[in-house]
Amino acid sequence: MGEVIKVDGVWKYYDGRAVVKGISLEVNRGDRFVIIGPSGSGKSTLLRMMNLLVRPDKGKIFFEGVELTSPKVNPVEYRKKIGIVFQHYNLFLHMTVMRNVMFGPVKVKGMKLDEARKVAEAALDSVHISRALWDKYPSQLSGGEQQRVAIARALAMEPEVMLFDEPTSALDPELTGEVLQVMKELAKKGMTMVVVTHELGFAASVASRIAFIDSGEVVEEGTPKEILFSPKKERTRAFLNRMWELYRIEPEW
């Protein structure tokens, strides 16, 4: 079955206000599904509902055909197959880099320490974290390094899909590139990814599909070409114009 994540008519309310309004979308195996949209439009909420970190008030979430929102299903069982990377890295502060990456395999999968270490080494290598950093604590790393460790921590669980919530927006511009590079390599290896981002360049070169979200609704969804270069909806156009302006790039239309 090609479908990894399915979001079906999902609603979320905060303080009586709907922040996600009946969103439906499907992420298929191998997809690089990019979500763009203005601040406060509900992107993080939507992403965090995909691993049930946030429980939807209405609608259903499916992972590989299993309805995670069903009262009979314990979402904890499925989170180990859904990696997530946060804007502020959220590494475990009291653990070294190596311990951070070993943590999931040991605590969740019950892996032996030496076996987990091998898995962690491979994961750290794949995000280009050099040996010299393995025994450092998160606070001793740059933002870009911390975020790459966070990606390695998620990868060590060998997830079926990786969720990214604005993984570069807390980084200085010169550190953004190294994280995007790692994500591009991940995409090349065929990882299924859902990425919330403001990096339109990344979206243009990596995405297989893009959804533009505004005020809790999917305004428009399609290929990068369709969304970025010939959007049909006025709201999408206006948003992209603002974004291109930010990056000082002239739109083609």
């Binding site: 970190l53 989170r79 475990f92």
Partner: peptide, 8 residues
Amino acid sequence: EAAESLGL
């Protein structure tokens, strides 16, 4: 949240 996301 980070721990929960890993499946704890």
